[in-house]
Design a protein around this nucleic acid. Structure first.
Lengths: 231, 231
DNA sequence: AGAAAACAAGAGCATCGCTCTCGTTTGTTG
DNA sequence: CAACAAACGAGAGCGATGCTCTTGTTTTCT
């Protein structure tokens, strides 16, 4: 797996990183749509055609940025969860993760848009992006699973008919022991609420509707925690 | 307000419509990013520079498509709400509107992405788009307001501290009579859940996680209705 | 040492948004 | 009705993009 220590391989790894870093800066500054391969080459003092030795296309570069983003977000969320001392305080863990995602999105709005906004390349997200994307969702599910193992039941949850249980079966059985169907539905709903709220906020849909985004986000996160049945 | 009946004004109105329609078709086919002014001109057998007599820029064209989209979506949602015979069946009205938005989004994914995905032009959505955007959110709020007027209380709702009440004050007082702070928070949460779910589904984040989108969406909509306290 | 692979650079293609100029058509006004 | 002004359409052109192809050089492997 590890690269040979030839000078060429080292140079390649360095240049690949340099390109990716520069692309990251461009992403943060001008957004995904305005990311330019030629500009990266210019800032690196190389011919634009040379960049294509490292990334076969602009979309491949964006894909790499997406993967990097999922990893960064997932890592930060996991760290925030781990930082909660009382592992049985599932509400605190949920809050920590939710606010971490929120903060991360506000710090890097363009990157968030790249991950959770409209897919900018052709259409289907490349396969490479789905695995790293499962990291945060897996983390949210793990917290909910832990809570359920501790005897927590979601509040005010509707009965889940067999057809719905079948529909969400992959998510329910993602972890072992599996999560109950009711909790799975609540968790998926919480997931949609979390990212829906952040997207609406970041993309300007709450403009002049909500005055203090942070206060309201905290309230929604607490409300969702209550619906999940967390302490 | 209405245009003079000169031949030129009529021709202008027709060409403006033709450009907008063609842009709409391109949007549906190749998405917002690949929408090309030159291609529109080509399909209209005119010089690309002539199109700029009707829309000052590509972004202006996209803005017009956004406004059109909000209007179409808002109109359909209002029609779906009005089609519910029993005006006091607020759960049925919420379901009708939610499923209408869902269907609309699946029929025109690129248009939905244009409205609720990452903003593709510079950054801030032009002022022209905010008024038509309030149509669906206003409709959702109206249903909830009607329910509350009929004595409905949201289920399992957290107390709303004054600071949060102040934060959501514009939304709460948007309609008269005003909606309670608790119901306002629940409504905003429902809003985020609805569009969050649709965005996650359309943008591929539920791939291999949920097997039947329609079944699961219906379950979530019912769950949200229950949380709102609707029948 | 020689063959093979990786590399960097440059020219070039097709496309894009947008601007400017230049005739032509239409509408308005004296 | 004639003259002027405004709107219009077409074309050329600018700067920029993603990407490909060729050509010559450097590094690696056999």
């Amino acid at each position: 797996m590890s690269a040979p220590r030839t000078a060429r391989a080292i140079a390649r790894a360095e240049l690949t990183r340099a390109i990716l870093d520069l692309a990251g800066h461009q992403l943060a500054e001008v957004g995904p749509a305005a990311l330019s391969v030629r500009r990266i080459a210019r800032e690196l003092d190389m011919a634009s055609s040379a960049v294509y030795r490292y990334f076969p296309s602009r979309d491949a570069l964006l894909t790499a940025l997406i993967v990097e983003g999922y990893d960064d977000l997932g890592g930060r969320a996991e760290a925030a969860d781990s930082a909660v001392d009382d592992r049985a305080d599932h509400a605190a863990r949920w809050r920590a993760v939710a606010h971490t995602v929120h903060d991360w999105a506000r710090e890097q709005p363009h990157r968030y848009a790249l991950l959770y906004g409209s897919p900018v390349p052709g259409y289907a997200a490349p396969q490479d992006t789905v695995t790293p994307a499962t990291r945060i969702t897996g983390l949210l599910l793990a917290i909910v699973r832990d809570a359920e193992q501790a005897g927590v039941h979601p509040a005010g949850v509707l009965p889940v008919p067999p057809v719905e249980a079948a529909a969400v079966q992959p998510v329910a059985t993602m972890l072992s022991p599996a999560v109950s169907d009711e909790m799975t539905v609540r968790a998926l709903t919480a997931w949609a609420t979390l990212f829906g709220h952040i997207s609406l906020e970041l993309f300007g849909h709450m403009h002049r509707g909500v005055l203090d985004y942070d206060v309201h986000f905290a309230q929604v996160v607490d409300q969702v925690a209550a619906d999940l049945g967390l302490a």
